[in-house]
């Protein structure tokens, strides 16, 4: 072979290649889930198994429980009880379901008591089939705006619920929310970059399901800058090592890799 492979030529990749974790590069996974999602079989989905997986690579995870998103009988209060058991590993996003305003009101009333383990909200518009600009989300978005909270939006290229046009309406209206665009409008990379350029202070692109897609990390870093990019895996959907391999194997600088894997998240979540 004529040149050194990525795991020999860059220090961080080499460290992750040779070791299960790298002390100077903890991993902050900003987009995870928790628990079985019985529409698929997961090898690891219990809290304990996920903790073992995360500790292996020295990762911390901000999650929103599958059941809280998919079946409203499972409450955000129950998610909080899980996080309380592992405060060194987990934070939660409060699941927002626009079809149940009573639950939303209740969770907003509880929100202060769930802090600091609860760090914001998760909106899954494609699945709940309510556009992100719909007024049913307003109570949550207004509160998040008042408190500069994090809101993780599932986003997807071409979606009429949470694609670029819909998100732009919300970002324009609520100027203080710290937006985390899950999956970075998968497939519509130019639109993702454009939204960050328009709102460079409070819009972040999140990478779940993107490391491993050839050229995507490079395109987003080039366009939006690594300071605006957060790491994520949808754990237990995707393996932490798969996604880290996609970052440290990307053709970007080691500084970019550190920004994505931990520095940006550490700024957003002081004390975690």
């Amino acid at each position: 072979m004529s040149e050194k492979p990525f795991f020999m030529s860059n220090k961080l990749a080499h460290a992750f290649w040779e070791n299960e974790f790298v002390p100077e590069c903890p991993v902050y996974d900003m987009h995870g889930h928790m628990g079985e999602n019985n529409a698929i079989t997961f090898p690891i989905a219990s809290t304990e198994d996920m903790v073992v997986h995360l500790r292996r690579i020295h990762a911390k995870l901000v999650f929103c429980h599958h059941w809280a998103l998919f079946t409203p009988e499972f409450t955000n209060g129950e998610c909080y009880e899980i996080v309380k058991r592992y405060p060194d590993v987990f934070r939660i996003y409060i699941a927002v379901n626009p079809h149940y305003s009573e639950i939303m009101r209740h969770d907003l009333a509880m929100y202060d008591s769930w802090k600091p383990l609860a760090v914001g909200f998760k909106i899954l518009a494609d699945y709940h089939q309510v556009k992100v600009s719909d007024p049913r989300y307003a109570p949550v978005l207004e509160r998040a705006d008042d408190e500069k909270a994090l809101v993780l939006f599932h986003t997807w290229g071409g979606s009429s619920f949470d694609g670029p046009d819909e998100l732009r309406k919300v970002v324009k209206k609520y100027r203080n929310i710290r937006y985390i665009l899950g999956h970075a409008f998968c497939g519509m990379w130019e639109d993702a970059v454009q939204l960050v350029r328009e709102y460079p202070d409070n819009v972040y692109l999140e990478l779940t399901s993107l490391p491993g897609r050839a050229g995507v990390i490079e395109t987003l870093v080039r366009g939006a800058g690594s300071e605006r990019i957060l790491f994520g895996t949808d754990l237990p959907w995707f393996d932490e090592y798969q996604a880290v391999g996609g970052i440290v194997g990307a053709k970007i600088s080691e500084d970019d890799m550190h920004n994505i894997l931990h520095r940006n998240a550490q700024q957003l979540l002081p004390g975690f």
């Binding site: 990525f6 795991f7 992750f16 290649w17 299960e20 292996r56 690579i57 490391p211 491993g212 897609r213 050839a214 393996d239 090592y241 798969q242 996604a243 880290v244 391999g245 996609g246 440290v248 194997g249 990307a250």
Partner: peptide, 17 residues
């Protein structure tokens, strides 16, 4: 799955499985 997928991400996954 190159060129749509990278070589490196699953290499790391296999390396640490």
């Amino acid at each position: 799955g190159y060129p749509y997928w990278t070589h490196t991400s699953q290499m790391m996954n296999i390396k640490h499985a």
